[in-house]
Design a protein around this nucleic acid. Structure first.
Length: 585
RNA sequence: GCUGAAAUAGCUCAAUUGGUAGAGCAACUGAAUCGUAAUCAGUAGGUUACGGGUUCAAUUCCUGUUUUCAGCACCA
C-alpha cells in the first residue's frame, strides 16, 4: 500500500480531505467541535467532539455525500494568518482550539487558519486550492479516541478516511484493504486449523490444534538446535511461583497490574507467572559459580500468563497465555559486549533463515538528563551502552536509538519487524539487567576470590511462539515453507481400485524418511481431491496412476503452480529431504 | 479498560415492518471409479452465544453477562 505520509502531494491532498470531512461534519452536526485531523500512513483521520451524538459506520455514507456536495461546489481554500490574540478571539468558544493556540509560541509561530466557504479551521497547512481537488475519497471507519491520546481524558470520535488523485488508486487501495483481511492470521488460522479459542477456556487463551502444534513444534526444534550449538542449557520450571518470589524480583511492586490475581493454597499464595526470570535466577543461584564458568545461558520454552487489557487481545498475536522462546544469560561485566554480539548474530541468523529483511533494530537507552528514573550505577550504564553501540556498529547493523526508552534496570535492544499487513511488531528482544541478579543476591567467585554480581541478559529470539506463528502465517499467507508445513506431501491416487497399493508404498517410504505425508484414499474424484489439496496449501501434491506405478516414478504438483513434474522415487525423496533439511523457503 | 459494532447448523451466509429459522459447502448413506481446483441423489444437522424482561407471539424490541471485530489506551 502507498505510504501517503511519505508522498508530499498525496499528503496535502489527504490533509485537505480531512478538512473537507470536518466541513461536512459541521454542516450535518453543527454542535461539532474539532480537535486535530492529521495525515497518517494510509489516509487521514479527524478527532471530533459531537456532544451527545454517537456516530456509527452507518452514518458515514451521509457524511461522504455532504463531502461530495462541498467538493463539487468548488470552494476556494484560503489561508489566513493570525496573531495569537486574533486566533484566540476567533476561536474563543472552542475549548479545543483554545487549548491548541494557548500552547503555541507566538514569537516564532505564525498562526494560520484555512477557510473554505463557511468553514474555518486552525491549521499549519499547506492545503489544496479548492475543495474540488478532493474527488476520490472514502471514509473507512469510525471509532473512539482519547483526547490527546491520554486514557484519563475524554473520548472523542475519530473518523478515518483516505483520498487519492484518481479513481484507480482509490479502488486499488480498497482492494488492498480487502486483501489484507484474507491475510489475517486469524482467518488463516481458522482455514488451516492452526488454532482455536473457546469461551469456556477464556479470552486470549488460544488452543493449538494438531496442525498448529506441528508448526510450533518445528519452530521449537529449530531454535532449540540453534541454542544447543551456542551452549544454552535448557530447563523446565513451573508456571506458577509464590507471591514472595515476585516480591523478591520486584515484579509484585512494578508489574502487578499485568499479572493475574494471586490464589491461596494452604499456607502458600501463588501467582501465574508473567515471565520466567525469577525462576531462572533461582536456578543460577542453586550452585556456586566460578568466573570461569560464565557466561551461563539458561533457556526455556516457557508458558507465561499476562493479564492483558481485554481490548488488546488478538488471535495468536496478543494473548494472555503465551510461550516465550526465553533465555537468561548470566555474564561478567566484561563479557557483556561479546555475549550481546552473539545474541545479535543469532537474531540475524534466524531472520536470514526466515527470509526476513524488513526490520529495524531499536536500541533503547537511558535518558542522561533523567537519571532518577534508572538503576543507579553510572559506570555500569555507560559501559554497557557503549558496548551495545560498538557491537551494532561492528556488525554493520542499522539501528536507531530511543533515548529514555530503556527499562529501569538496563538498556535494551528490540527488533521491530514490518509485517505484510498492519503496523510493526516486536519479535526479538534483548535486555540487559543490572538489578535482578542483585535482588536475588546472585554471585560468582572472581579470580581474586571475591564474590561479584553477574549481569543478566534477558533475550527472546522468536519472541513468543504464539506471535511468531501469527507473523509467519501472515507473511506466507498460510503457505508455510515445506519444513514448517503441517502436511508436506499429499498423495492422490488417480483411481482407488488400481493405484492405492502403489500409493501406500510411496506413503510408507515417505513416512520412513520422516516426511509428514497424507494419503487421500477417499472415494472421490481426482479433481475434488486436488481442489482440497490446493486450498489446504500443501507444498507437494502427488498424483499417482498407471504411468507412475509402471515406471516407478511419482508426479507432483508444486503449491502455487499448475505445472506437473515427474521424478523417480529416489530423486523425489532426495529433493524433499534436502529441502526440509535446509529449511528452504 | 474505553468508544462503537456484532454473535443464526462444523464453515460461509439468508430470514420481508415481531408471526414457530433457510441455502451452499462440510458430515453421513447410496450410486458413479474418474489423470490435475467442487459427480449425482438422499439423510441428518439449530433451546438463533448465555441469562432476564416487554408481548398473544421475540433470531427480530429492551436489559445484564460472555466472546468476537474496528479503533483508542496499554504492551518488562
Amino acid at each position: 500500500m502507498k505510504n501517503i505520509k511519505e508522498d508530499e502531494k498525496l499528503n496535502v491532498l489527504n490533509h485537505s480531505c480531512a478538512h473537507l470531512l470536518a466541513h461536512a461534519v459541521k454542516h450535518l452536526y453543527p454542535q461539532a467541535k474539532f480537535w486535530v485531523g492529521p495525515v497518517i500512513e494510509s489516509g487521514f483521520y479527524y478527532d471530533i467532539d459531537l456532544g451527545d451524538v454517537t456516530l456509527t459506520e452507518e452514518d458515514l455514507p451521509s457524511i461522504e455525500k455532504e463531502m461530495k456536495k462541498i467538493s463539487k461546489s468548488d470552494k476556494l481554500i484560503k489561508r489566513i494568518e493570525l496573531s495569537k490574540q486574533e486566533a484566540l478571539d476567533m476561536f474563543k468558544d472552542d475549548e479545543y482550539k483554545v487549548d491548541l493556540i494557548s500552547r503555541m509560541d507566538e514569537n516564532d509561530t505564525v498562526i494560520s487558519a484555512y477557510k473554505q466557504d463557511d468553514f474555518i479551521d486552525l491549521c499549519r497547512g499547506p492545503h489544496m486550492n479548492s475543495t474540488k481537488a478532493m474527488k476520490y475519497f472514502k471514509l473507512l471507519k469510525v471509532s473512539g479516541a482519547y483526547w490527546k491520546g491520554d486514557a484519563n481524558n475524554k473520548m472523542l470520535q475519530r473518523i478515518y478516511g483516505i483520498c487519492f488523485e484518481n479513481e484507480e488508486d482509490l479502488n486499488e487501495c480498497l482492494r488492498e484493504i480487502e486483501e489484507a483481511k484474507e491475510r489475517d492470521h486469524r482467518k488463516i488460522g481458522k482455514d488451516l486449523s492452526i488454532f482455536m479459542s473457546h469461551d469456556l477456556v477464556g479470552k486470549g487463551m488460544p488452543m493449538w490444534l494438531p496442525n498448529g502444534a506441528i508448526v510450533r513444534k518445528q519452530l521449537e526444534n529449530y531454535i532449540y538446535e540453534k541454542e544447543q550449538k551456542l551452549n544454552y542449557l535448557h530447563v523446565y520450571t513451573p508456571c506458577v511461583g509464590t507471591v514472595d518470589l515476585y516480591k523478591t524480583s520486584g515484579h509484585w511492586d512494578h508489574y502487578k497490574e499485568n499479572m493475574f490475581p494471586s490464589m491461596k493454597v494452604d499456607t502458600e499464595e501463588f501467582v501465574l507467572r508473567p515471565m520466567n526470570c525469577p525462576h531462572h535466577m533461582l536456578i543460577y543461584g542453586n550452585e556456586l559459580h566460578s568466573y570461569k564458568d560464565l557466561p551461563i545461558r539458561i533457556g526455556e520454552f516457557a508458558a507465561d500468563f499476562r493479564y492483558e487489557a481485554s481490548g488488546a487481545v488478538k488471535g495468536l498475536e496478543r494473548v494472555r497465555c503465551m510461550c516465550q522462546n526465553d533465555a537468561h544469560l548470566f555474564v561478567r561485566p566484561d563479557q557483556i559486549g561479546d555475549e550481546f554480539k552473539k545474541v545479535v548474530e543469532l537474531i540475524l541468523d534466524v531472520y536470514k533463515d526466515f527470509g526476513l529483511n524488513n526490520y529495524k533494530f531499536r536500541l533503547s537507552l537511558r535518558d542522561p538528563e533523567d537519571k532518577e528514573k534508572y538503576f543507579d550505577d553510572d559506570e555500569m550504564w555507560n559501559n554497557a551502552e557503549n558496548k551495545l553501540r560498538e557491537v551494532l556498529n561492528e556488525l554493520g547493523v542499522e539501528y536507531f536509538e530511543a533515548i529514555g526508552e530503556a527499562a529501569f534496570y538496563g538498556p535494551k535492544l528490540d527488533v521491530e519487524v514490518k509485517p505484510a499487513i498492519g503496523p510493526e511488531v516486536t519479535l526479538s528482544t534483548c535486555q540487559l539487567d543490572f538489578l535482578l541478579p542483585r535482588r536475588f543476591e546472585l554471585t560468582y567467585v572472581d579470580s581474586d576470590g571475591s564474590k561479584k554480581t553477574p549481569v543478566v541478559i534477558h533475550r527472546a529470539i522468536l519472541g513468543t511462539f504464539d506471535r511468531f506463528t501469527a507473523f509467519i502465517l501472515e507473511e506466507t499467507k498460510g503457505a508455510l515453507p515445506t519444513w514448517l508445513s503441517p502436511v508436506q506431501v499429499n498423495i492422490i491416487p488417480v483411481n482407488n481400485e488400481y493405484h492405492l497399493e502403489y500409493c501406500n508404498e510411496i506413503f510408507d517410504l515417505l513416512k520412513e524418511n520422516n516426511v509428514r505425508v497424507k494419503l487421500d484414499d477417499r472415494e472421490e474424484k481426482l479433481n475434488y481431491k486436488m481442489r482440497e489439496s490446493v486450498i489446504s496449501k500443501v507444498p507437494y501434491t502427488l498424483i499417482l496412476g498407471d504411468k507412475e506405478r509402471d515406471a516407478k516414478t511419482i508426479s507432483y504438483r508444486l503449491r502455487g503452480s499448475n505445472e506437473t513434474f515427474n521424478l523417480s522415487i529416489d530423486e523425489f525423496i532426495k529433493k524433499l529431504s534436502d529441502e526440509i533439511k535446509n529449511k528452504s523457503l
